[in-house]
Design a protein around this nucleic acid. Structure first.
Length: 491
RNA sequence: GCCCCCAUCGUCUAGUGGUUAGGACACCGCUCUUUCAAGGCGGCAACGGGGGUUCAAUUCUCCCUGGGGGCACCA
């Protein structure tokens, strides 16, 4: 590494005003990948300056879900670091200090307009078809006017004096040079009347103080960037590099939101998506290798990821592809790994007890092995495999109709039962031999024998291989289920 | 209304001043098989429109259209 080069420092700066969602996760991921790729630092900063909307639970949600995804941070909550605190609500004095500095230098001013007044004027502007920007009327208040407002008990905000001529350029790593006319930007608020900072202000102060080199964030912040650059300049701060990621959209092409179904990371976690599948999928939303590789190991992804190959067009979130990818990763796991991930779902549905006996654990391992190919998300296991655990599983009416309601079935089941009874040991091979012989002996087709037996044992027409499934159930249970089925014919 | 961004199969994308425009998901066949999956094989399917530049534009440029985002004492 080049010692002369500044260390790469990026941050993920969520505001805890809602559940941690896919869009946030993608932004976090790209920052994390960039940091890891460059051997830099990834910093987590919680932007909780909105006292009303911010909730501690949401901060916790971000922290837990980032951990779950495996996106570890070098500085931030829990790990701390040299540039903390990492909650903006604990840095209020810092923002105040810089706001007063700007005030003293005449680059900002107190504004006594009330929110009602502002809204009123904004509405008028819009009616006239004019841009709804602040008119700057408090820019040059006389001492007297200021005194008057104070006596009225008005609490001022601090506004930034936006130069009303010139152009501010945003040099974006992904989009190139973008220009904004300053005169289109109104004097915006730095400090609210309760002396907490606004996003644009706190962001600049913290990114500077935390020595952030690259600001990688959503596209929705692009038009905020000139405002921030103006603050950087006023404070004589060096601007970081910017990279604005395009948004993730829902199926209808609008910004992904609850309207499109589940967007929270915790939903995907609960549903049984593997963290790495989510990461891998999200990485492909706006980034690709030249060979369009789909599946990456963690090391591979870190190695191959770079900002240059990040696309600039918005990407539609496609759950089908995520499902496929998740299934792909489930299939690649060892059965015992799958089994241990499955257990919480089985417990939740009461299919297994809190305490799991070794024998039961082995059974779950075999079930995991059998169902691995069928699982797209882990939670599906309870629907796929409940019959293994429930003595009173449901016989699907359609399955009964299609496979059991045949003249020959009672006879077949009785014969099967008789022969199984005579079996010395109960292995897949023996069972297969037995059934195939039975097929030959009575001139059945394979299907005629296998299908009804599957329904008798599982209540359904689809599922794992018949022999392996039967062996997992065990001889005794198999016989019991055949009896149970036989009993159905008596009615 | 104003400002900014974006534009290749249905979706995620690769790609080039001249290509049979490639891959992946989804979808549809076939195959394997006791079923369903998984697997294997194959198929369908795209350069938004109009000007320019050029011998040649999907690629460069302009306009339009479409989509998205922003214009808060929210972030």
């Amino acid at each position: 590494m080049n010692k002369n080069k500044r260390e790469i420092r990026v941050r993920f700066a969520p505001s805890p005003t809602g559940e941690f969602h896919l869009g946030g996760a993608r932004t976090a991921l790209f920052n994390w990948l960039f940091a890891r790729h460059c051997k830099g630092k990834f910093i987590l900063r919680i932007e909780d300056t909105d006292a009303i909307r911010s909730k501690n639970d949401f901060s916790q949600s971000v922290i837990e879900n980032l951990k779950w995804l495996g996106l570890d941070w070098n500085e931030g909550p829990e790990v701390e670091g040299s540039y903390g605190p990492y909650f903006q609500s604990q840095r209020l004095q810092i923002y105040k200090k810089y706001a007063y500095k700007l005030l003293e230098e005449g680059k900002a001013y107190f504004c006594y307009c009330t929110q009602e007044e502002l809204e009123e004027r904004k509405r008028e502007k819009q009616k006239e078809g004019k841009p709804p920007k602040y008119d700057g009327r408090c820019r040059n208040l006389s001492e007297e006017e200021r005194k008057h407002f104070k006596e009225e008990g008005r609490k001022p905000v601090v506004r930034f004096k936006v130069p009303q001529e010139g152009i501010t350029y945003v040099e974006d790593l992904l989009r190139g040079k973008i220009s904004f006319e300053n005169k289109l930007i109104g004097d915006f608020v730095l400090l609210k009347s309760d002396e907490t900072p606004t996003y644009n202000f706190a962001n600049v102060i913290d990114d500077t103080l935390m020595k952030i080199t690259h600001v990688i964030r959503g596209d929705d912040h692009l038009s905020n960037t000139p405002r921030q650059i103006l603050i950087y300049q006023a404070l004589n701060f060096q601007t970081p590099q910017f990279a604005h990621l395009s948004m993730i959209l829902g199926k209808d092409g609008t910004k992904l939101s609850k309207r499109h179904g589940a967007t929270s990371i915790s939903y995907y976690r609960k549903k049984g998506y593997l963290p790495w599948a989510v990461v891998n999928y999200l990485a492909l939303l706006g980034w690709a290798t030249s060979d369009s590789q789909q599946l990456f190991s963690k090391e591979e992804l870190i190695k191959k990821f770079n900002l240059e190959r990040v696309g600039k067009n918005p990407a539609v979130f496609d759950i089908k592809k995520l499902e496929w990818m998740n299934g792909e990763y489930i299939r690649r796991m060892k059965p015992e790994e799958v089994a241990s991930l499955l257990i919480p779902y089985l417990k939740e549905k009461g299919l297994v007890k809190e305490r799991i006996e070794p024998k039961e654990k082995e059974m779950i391992r075999k079930i995991a092995q059998m169902e691995q190919n069928r699982l797209k998300v882990l939670s599906e296991i309870t629907d796929l495999a409940d019959f293994f655990f429930k003595k009173d599983f449901i016989y699907e009416p359609k399955a009964v109709e299609k496979r059991l309601n045949k003249e020959y079935v009672p006879f077949l089941l009785k014969e099967t039962k008789k022969e199984i009874n005579e079996l010395a040991s109960f292995t897949e091979e023996e069972l297969e031999d037995l059934l195939r012989n039975l097929t030959k002996k009575f001139s059945f087709s394979t299907g005629e024998v296998f299908h009804p037996l599957r329904v008798a044992l599982t209540g359904r027409t689809r599922g794992p291989g018949l022999f392996e499934l039967a062996v997992v159930l065990g001889k005794e249970e198999v016989l019991r289920r055949i009896d149970k089925t036989l009993a159905m014919f008596k009615n």
